[in-house]
């Protein structure tokens, strides 16, 4: 177990380092923010002063080594454009993104799991309709489905606000909007948009798994024992299909956070995805690198969490040992 955790930590650190280096080189190759932002009236002295103050006059390896040195001490640098620490800019917005992605995932589970289970027990047209709808669900681009939801629920019906984040409530120093009615009013549309893909995916996954599971011997045996169909489903079939579901959800939670970029931009949701888009536009390297480091860390942690969940769900899995 400890070896497993240590090995995972090693992998994680390597991924972080590689990511930082790649982004560093990429942004360096595009250009520097001073050329993008400096006033045209600025003379060579103004420009040189700004470039020097931001440390951009150093060679790339030097900049990278200096950056790593600071990063080891927990300092991910100041944003060029905001003039404040990049990490705190991201942490300021992380709750908004996690809240959005978390709600989206929750919605996906709430809708996808029961729907999939139900569809899995059905044959014929109902199953085909649900299949077709789920296919549609994950073929629709987020951008388009988000616009559609805005158009229907905000612009035409006027029930919900078309964007922005609602009133927030501070809990343990983190401001979250899921505790206020106004917060939910703002959260519903973007979270539903973001949930669409995962719901569809989950429905398909669970439908197949259930249909398959019901034909297995353990299910037939349970039925033969006289258990009611509902209990066969939730008590026997569901636990058996949870492993692939959790694997996919774990992976998807990561990409939901990453894909939130589009949804956040569309709904003006002040999460870190929107910060990243703005930072790329202005070549604000400290923010870009810090964002990727934070999301990579999230990915690594989520995957670790998924592996640990396996262990709980399936006693046969023993991490760190080779097993057949």
């Amino acid at each position: 177990m400890t070896t497993f955790l240590l090995r995972r930590l090693g992998h994680g650190l390597f991924v972080l380092l590689a990511m930082a280096l790649l982004v560093f080189i990429a942004v360096y190759a595009i250009g520097n923010p001073v050329d993008l932002l400096v006033d045209p009236q600025a003379d060579a002295a103004d420009r040189a002063r700004a470039i020097h103050a931001l440390g951009l006059d150093q060679s790339l390896p030097r900049q990278f080594v200096a950056y790593l040195g600071h990063a080891l001490r927990g300092d991910l640098g100041n944003s060029f454009v905001y003039g404040t620490p990049a990490l705190s800019l991201i942490m300021e917005r992380l709750p908004a993104t996690l809240e959005l992605a978390g709600t989206a995932l929750f919605v996906a589970i709430l809708a996808g799991l029961p729907l999939g289970l139900w569809a899995g027990t059905r044959q014929g047209p109902i199953r085909q309709i649900i299949d077709g709808l789920s296919l549609l669900g994950f073929s629709l681009p987020t951008f388009w489905s988000g616009l559609l939801l805005i158009l229907i629920f905000a612009v035409t019906l006027g029930w919900l606000p078309p964007g922005g984040r609602g009133e927030t409530h501070v809990l343990y120093g983190i401001s979250l909007s899921i505790f206020t009615p106004d917060g939910w009013r703002h959260l519903i549309l973007p979270a539903s948009t973001l949930a669409l893909f995962n719901t569809a995916l989950l429905v398909r996954l669970v439908t197949r798994g259930t249909a398959d599971g019901l034909t297995q011997e353990y299910a037939r045996y349970a039925k033969a024992r006289g258990l009611p169909p509902g209990q066969v489903l939730t008590g026997h079939v569901l636990p058996n299909i949870l492993i692939p579901v959790i694997t996919v959800l774990g992976l998807e939670f990561g990409s939901t956070i990453a894909f939130a970029v589009v949804t956040e931009t569309l709904f003006g949701w002040p999460g870190m995805g929107k910060l990243l888009i703005d930072a790329i536009g202005t070549l604000d390297r400290p923010v870009i690198v810090a964002y990727l480091l934070v999301t990579t860390t999230l990915f690594v942690t989520i995957n670790l969490g998924v592996d640990l969940l396996y262990m709980i769900l399936d006693p046969r899995v023993r991490l760190g040992n080779s097993h057949g």
Binding site: L147, I150, A154, V155, P161, P162, G163, G164
Partner: peptide, 18 residues
């Protein structure tokens, strides 16, 4: 002042009276 950098978001906010 609301920061609405995406054009559809800005337009939707106006159309919905936000």
């Amino acid at each position: 002042f609301r920061i609405l950098t995406a054009e559809p978001a800005r337009l939707a906010a106006l159309l919905s009276g936000q």
